[in-house]
């Protein structure tokens, strides 16, 4: 076991980890940040996407030790400072971008990464960017719509209701 330190959602955090401890397990079990989900544990589904040093990564496919000293942002760090929902989160609610909600943390984190690099993506770009995020409820239409809306674009013609 070793003590691992990192900045999570703006706060210095530390905890114990074995060499084989995955970042997602460190966040959930050591830091009690259970917003980041484990869907497949095989790097397919994207429910565990977090940001490490500003980049979206699958927290199930990275060791906690590799995030030593890193800046990590999880879905718990996405709300506004006053606790209200961020623009992306609010758009998911407004446009019914979730049903069961299991994939949503990863969807939110991927959406935030996309909009950081590409503030006005096309619908095709949104769909392409979400290739690594699987949702088994919504059929994706309303997720795409929510992300388009969060980017400030008119979504009246996007996808189906």
């Amino acid at each position: 076991m070793a003590t691992i330190k990192m900045t999570v959602n703006g706060r210095e955090r530390s905890g114990e980890a074995e060499g084989r401890t995955l970042l997602v397990d460190f966040l959930r079990q050591e830091l009690n940040l259970t917003g980041t989900h484990v869907g497949c544990d095989t790097s397919q589904c994207g429910a565990c996407v977090v940001h490490v040093n500003g980049e979206a990564v699958k927290a199930c496919t990275m060791f906690a030790a590799e995030a030593e000293g890193a800046e990590v942002v999880t879905v718990e760090g996405m709300a506004n400072p006053d606790g209200s929902l961020s623009v992306i989160q609010q758009a998911f609610q407004d446009h019914h971008g979730l049903q069961c909600g299991f994939c949503t943390p990863g969807m939110i984190m991927s959406a935030a990464a996309l909009l950081k690099d590409n503030p006005k993506p096309t619908e095709a770009e949104v769909r392409h960017y979400l290739e690594g995020n699987i949702c088994r409820c919504t059929g994706y239409h309303n997720i795409v719509k929510a992300i388009m809306a969060a980017s400030g674009q008119d979504v009246s013609a996007v996808a189906a209701e």
Partner: peptide, 9 residues
């Protein structure tokens, strides 16, 4: 290659 999160690692 892969998807955006995979390409970041």
């Amino acid at each position: 290659i892969g998807d955006p999160a995979v390409r970041n690692r």
